[in-house]
Design a protein around this nucleic acid. Sequence first.
DNA 1: CAGGTCGGTGTACAGTTGTACACAGACTAG
DNA 2: CTAGTCTGTGTACAACTGTACACCGACCTG
Lengths: 212, 212
Amino acid sequence: MNTRAPESRAERKRQTRQALLDAALRLLEEQSFSGLGLRAVTREAGVVPTTFYRHFERMEDLGLALIDESFRTLREMIRDARSDPANYEHVIASSVEILVRHVQQNRLHFGFIARERFSGVAEIRHAIRAEIRLFGSELATDLARFPYMREWGTEDLQVMAGLIVNAMVSIAEEVLDAPAGGPEAVQEIRRIAEKQLRMIVIGAPAWQSSRR
Amino acid sequence: MNTRAPESRAERKRQTRQALLDAALRLLEEQSFSGLGLRAVTREAGVVPTTFYRHFERMEDLGLALIDESFRTLREMIRDARSDPANYEHVIASSVEILVRHVQQNRLHFGFIARERFSGVAEIRHAIRAEIRLFGSELATDLARFPYMREWGTEDLQVMAGLIVNAMVSIAEEVLDAPAGGPEAVQEIRRIAEKQLRMIVIGAPAWQSSRR
DNA sequence: CAGGTCGGTGTACAGTTGTACACAGACTAG
DNA sequence: CTAGTCTGTGTACAACTGTACACCGACCTG
């Protein structure tokens, strides 16, 4: 029967699970994952330690869930950005704009990803790298749609996508470091970021023609 | 009086201090710094926990010492690389070669740096970033010596140096991930790395002229 | 060669960790 | 309506943590 109660059992379970994820993310702002304890998470979430096991077998599983969560918003972002493959300048400016805004709106998620990308916990690290690699591949196929790159080899596209992804990660990091309410500092980051991406994208044809 | 004993007291102190640093570095291969305990370090070093305090006040101080150690070799590397500012292709190839070799020979140090660059421990993170920024600045002044960059603005040079440093960091990361004894995998990394750097360096003039 | 300094040891303790287990109450399915 | 399934609780414990303190023995200095 369809429950009339405001929250079904399954829904409440989902809520405490989310509370655990949120609590962990909050704590991960000032701790790295390998130093994060099960008890600390449950304490922050306001539940008893043993509840943790109702939702995750090990801490690593919670970490993987956080990675999932983070990259879902990241993909959302990039889907917006690849709207108009005609004008480079426009794509660059709006991509940077979208990236910066999303990072600001998801500080905790992006901070987590940026930090744990090189973290000591192998399982977490590898999961993140896999996602980033995938992200780069998607970007590469998007790049292939640009007129002057249509004839590039896939490896060259991958290399270029890698450069862009690297740049984006470091842009995100700078945004994260900027004081939360400093609009002109963020503006400066955006300006430098656009310059960096322009450097990569506009410099590319010259590089390409120089090896032909 | 000049001691005749093979090891003076001060020398032996230096040795156990080094043993602590080495032990920490070894453990940091599979743990992140914030999860590393004083007791674990002393255990690995083969001394009693309280000995730690004879050398460092807090764990963070040990971390800072490790950063010092790591960047000393990094600077050594770059000093070699900036020998001949005439031929780009040669500079790129030999820079990559030197970078890859140094990373291979100092896996633990570079792994530590790469991982803790985004780590949760603010003090460690900031110290590393300061060193990397300095590294980028030095690179920027080196770039200024290249003929066609002589007229660039300092900001443009810094942006480009930033791109290169980013690329180098990600190259180092890939080398660290490659199986230790896989020469052809490393060869492949080197090839891609050279392509990336060429992309940045050779593409730059086109970028520069397009905004004048 | 005497005394002090100092690096390393051993013991001790309170706090925290992960996890096992029995239990309670609420939702759900029959 | 009832029996059963779940989610969250409370208690318990062994293992580990950082660090305080007293101590020892070897080196160094006078």
